[in-house]
Design a binder for these strands. Structure first.
Lengths: 111, 111
DNA sequence: ATACTTAAGTATCAAAACGATACTAATGGA
DNA sequence: TCCATTAGTATCGTTTTGATACTTAAGTAT
């Protein structure tokens, strides 16, 4: 199934271009685990990000098919973002990251 | 085990600071799956990276305990890099990324 | 002796990404 | 008429990253 050579894994540069932006994983994590969010809700959920960057990263994610954007014809504006099926497929990656982080915490405290 | 809220996953910003650099996952992938490499071998394995950046990202990874650096007192210099136990712990994350990438490829071609 | 080679860097400067702040548009309500 | 609201865009300064050249130290060839 998996073999031990890195060359038989996915082409890292391609994947990292898709999910490797400074804020992309944060955005995806929220949309994948918490579901649809409005622009302003994402902003509140990631307080460190600037509006400009949030817009840009969302556009990138949309272009790459990981996030879907729905605009409502209302005033004031209402725009909802959600993870696509493809985006939700990243859930196991996040779970493994979580597992790694937890394991790390416990044995990094050991003498 | 895992719950469905993003707030119960790892603090994304911390993890992404460690492994989210532009080249860090590429470097880690090689060291994790292929084992120890010399500086020059990494450079050849990731042709797009500049020498300056490779040095910097390796120093970051070393500082964060994911990569180990061994200098041999030889001329010309010989420096070997390898993933630490902690770094190798990321292997399942890479494997899930690979699974995702493969799944994506197959059904993105479907009509 | 002098010059050349090699590997792993550093130094320097230009380009790109990112951050802070201010501004815009459209509508309903005071 | 003016204000509040939401999701942006515009502008400009700072920080990261990229391209290129230089450094260091010992062995090897001349």
């Amino acid at each position: 199934m998996h073999d031990k050579s890195s060359s038989n894994l996915c082409p890292a540069p391609l994947v990292f271009a898709m999910i490797g932006g400074k804020w992309k994983l944060s955005i995806l994590q929220i949309l994948i685990f918490d579901g649809t969010k409005r622009f302003g809700e994402l902003r509140k959920a990631i307080p460190e990000i600037t509006q400009t960057m949030l817009t840009k990263q969302l556009r990138d994610l949309e272009r790459d098919g990981l996030v879907e954007r729905v605009v409502y014809a209302e005033v004031p504006p209402k725009v909802e973002y959600s993870a696509t099926e493809d985006g939700v497929g990243l859930m196991p990656v996040f779970k493994e990251m979580h597992t790694w982080w937890e394991a790390r915490k416990s044995w990094s405290k050991a003498p």
